[in-house]
Amino acid sequence: MKRNRFSSRKRISADATELSRLAIGLAESGSKLEDTFWQSRLAELVNRLFHDGAEDDFTASLDRLFDTHPMAHDDLADLIEAHAESCVISHQGEDFDLLLFAAPVLAWSRFSIPAAAIPKGTLQTLKVHLGAHVFASGARIALADYLYSPDQLPHSFVDTWQMMHELGAAALAQTDLNIDSSAMPETNRFLSDTRYLVGALTVPRGMPIFRWNEADKSTRETALKEWLKQGAPCLEPLLTGCAYQALLADAYHAACRASDSASRPYSLNASVAFLQAALGQPDENLRAVIGGFHDKRLEEYRIGFGPADSDVVYHGVVWPLLGIEDETTEIAGEIEAVLRKVGLKEVVVLDQQFPYEFCDDCGAPLYPNIEGDTVHAEMPEQDDAPSQTLH
Rank of each mutant, 00 (worst) to 15 (best):
G93L: 12
K32W: 09
A60M: 03
K10Q: 15
Q382F: 14
Q39C: 04
L100D: 05
S8C: 14
L238T: 01
H294R: 13
A308Q: 15
A139S: 15
A103D: 00
A14M: 07
D151P: 03
Q388D: 06
E378A: 09
D145Q: 12
A116K: 05
S61F: 00
S192V: 10
Q382D: 13
Q388I: 03
E166H: 15
D52E: 14
P70K: 05
R9G: 08
A332C: 14
P114G: 03
G316W: 06
T125G: 01
P355R: 13
I335F: 02
C87T: 13
E94T: 15
K127F: 08
A27T: 01
R220F: 04
T374L: 13
L49V: 06
T202A: 12
I290C: 14
E55Y: 13
E325F: 03
G333L: 02
S149D: 07
K341Q: 15
S13Y: 15
E334D: 06
D56L: 08
A288D: 08
Q162M: 10
V46P: 00
P365C: 10
D384K: 13
H51L: 13
A139F: 13
D159G: 05
I141P: 00
P365H: 07
A142S: 15
H69G: 01
H133Y: 04
E378W: 10
E327K: 12
G241D: 12
V313N: 03
E34N: 03
S310D: 15
D78I: 06
R11Q: 03
P154M: 01
G280L: 11
S261E: 10
G323W: 07
H294D: 13
Q174Y: 07
M207N: 11
A254Y: 08
L322R: 05
E330S: 07
L286Q: 01
T59C: 02
S90D: 11
I113R: 00
F50M: 12
H294G: 12
D361T: 15
Q281E: 15
A270F: 04
S29L: 02
K345C: 01
G206C: 12
V134Q: 03
L49K: 02
N188Y: 07
L191P: 00
I303T: 10
P208H: 09
A337M: 08
A72T: 03
V46D: 00
V88H: 15
P355C: 14
Y252Q: 09
E284P: 02
L390W: 10
L201V: 14
E236N: 13
D295P: 06
H73G: 00
A273Q: 04
N178W: 14
T122L: 09
G30S: 08
G206W: 12
L106V: 04
T329A: 01
S271P: 01
P150R: 08
D260T: 09
L26Y: 00
S61K: 00
K127S: 10
H91T: 06
G316V: 07
L344R: 01
